[in-house]
C-alpha cells in the first residue's frame, strides 16, 4: 500500500513541528498577531499543535492605532475563544512618550514606527522567541530567512551571518538579552495559506471579502479613505467594491477591486492574478531593499 501525504498536510506537519520546538526550546515565547490571515493561520496551527492544552504563548499585537475596525473585533473574539492572553504594544504610546516621532506628509505611515514599539514590548515582557507569520515567497529578503532567526541584544538581524539550518534541526541557543524570530509557515505560499483556510474552514476578518468602502486612488493603488489618511488635493474619495489581499496598517494596505465574497472566489482570484500579494504594499515600495533594511532594524 502506498501512502501519500498532500502538500497541505506536509506543510501543516512541518509548521506544527516548528511550533513545538519553540515551546520546548524557549522560556518566554509569544505569537506576533497582526490580525492578518498569516498570523491567523499560525495561531490556528498553534491551537492544533498543543491541543487539548491551551496555546502556551500569549498573542502580541503591535497596534499602530490605524487599524481596520474589523481586525480588532476579530482579534478580541479569537482571544476569547482560545482563552489566550493578549498583550498590546501601542505605537500611539511610543509617540506620546517620545520614543518615536510621527512621520509627516502624504506618505506618512506608522509602519516603520512599529519596530520601536515591537522591540520595546519584547524588552518589557522579556520574550525570548517571537513567532511570526512571514513567508519566504512574500518578498526577496524574506526568501533568505531562517525558520529560527537570531536577533542580537539590540533586536537586529544580520542577514550575512545567519546560522545554517539543516534537516529539521533548529538551533535556538542564545545569550541573555538576545531573542529569536521564528517563522513556522516559511515554506507556505499565498495559495497554500488560502487553500488551508478553505480546507479547515478557518474564520477570517470580513475585510478579506468583498465589501463597499470609501477609497481613493494613489499611484495606481486603491487605499482606504480613513481619517488617518491625508488626501492630496487631486485625490477623490469614491465608493468601491473592494477587499484586502493582505492586511496591515491602514496607511500601507492596498485594496483590490474584487467581487470575491467567499473562499472559493478568493482562491480562483489568486490563481488568476498576475500581481504578487505585496504588490499592493506601500511599505515595500520605498526602495529595492526596503524590507531587508527594516528587517535588519528589528521589523517583523
Amino acid at each position: 500500500m502506498s501512502y501519500k501525504l498532500t502538500h497541505l498536510k506536509e506543510l501543516e506537519s512541518e509548521s506544527i513541528y516548528v511550533l513545538r520546538e519553540v515551546a520546548a526550546q524557549f522560556e518566554k515565547p509569544a505569537i506576533l498577531f497582526s490580525g492578518g490571515k498569516d498570523s491567523i493561520v499560525v495561531t490556528y496551527l498553534a491551537y492544533k499543535a498543543f491541543y487539548p492544552a491551551k496555546i502556551p504563548f500569549p498573542l502580541v499585537h503591535i497596534d499602530t492605532g490605524h487599524n481596520f475596525a474589523e481586525t480588532i473585533t476579530y482579534r478580541d473574539e479569537l482571544v476569547k475563544k482560545l482563552g489566550a492572553r493578549l498583550i498590546v504594544g501601542s505605537v500611539q504610546e511610543s509617540i506620546d512618550t517620545g520614543r518615536v516621532k510621527e512621520e509627516k506628509g502624504y506618505y506618512a505611515s506608522r509602519n516603520r514606527l512599529q519596530t520601536t514599539t515591537l522591540l520595546d514590548t519584547i524588552d518589557r515582557y522579556q520574550f525570548d522567541a517571537c513567532i511570526g507569520g512571514a513567508r519566504r515567497d512574500e518578498e526577496k529578503a524574506r526568501a533568505k530567512e531562517r525558520f529560527f532567526s537570531h536577533r542580537d541584544e539590540l533586536g537586529q538581524w544580520n542577514p550575512k551571518n545567519q546560522r545554517p539550518e539543516l534537516w529539521n534541526i533548529f538551533n535556538g541557543k542564545k545569550n541573555m538579552g538576545e531573542h529569536f524570530r521564528v517563522f513556522p509557515i516559511s515554506n507556505w505560499t499565498e495559495m497554500d495559506v488560502w487553500q488551508y483556510i478553505y480546507q479547515n474552514n478557518i474564520p477570517l476578518p470580513s475585510i478579506y471579502f468583498t465589501h463597499e468602502r470609501a477609497c481613493f486612488l494613489r499611484n495606481g493603488q486603491w487605499l482606504a479613505a480613513e481619517p488617518c489618511m491625508k488626501l492630496k488635493p487631486n485625490e477623490k474619495v469614491e465608493i468601491k467594491q473592494v477587499r484586502c489581499r493582505t492586511v496591515g496598517d491602514i496607511s500601507c494596505t492596498g485594496l483590490t477591486l474584487s467581487k470575491a465574497h467567499n473562499l472559493t472566489d478568493i482562491i480562483a482570484e489568486i490563481a488568476a492574478t498576475r500581481i504578487t500579494e505585496r504588490g499592493g504594499r506601500a511599505d515595500d515600495k520605498r526602495s529595492e531593499t526596503s524590507m531587508e533594511d527594516r528587517k535588519k532594524e528589528g521589523y517583523f
Binding site: R136, D137, E139, K140, A141, R142, A143, K144, P159, K160, Q162, S186, N187, T189, M191, E288, T289, E292, D293
Partner: peptide
C-alpha cells in the same frame, strides 16, 4: 535578481545564501 534578495548579493552580483523559491 529574482532570488538574490540581499543588498550585498545585489551589489556584488553573487548569491551568498540559499534562496528558496516556490512554484506549483
Amino acid at each position: 535578481l529574482l532570488t538574490d534578495g540581499l543588498r550585498a548579493e545585489r551589489e556584488q552580483g553573487i548569491t551568498i545564501d540559499v534562496a528558496y523559491r516556490y512554484f506549483a
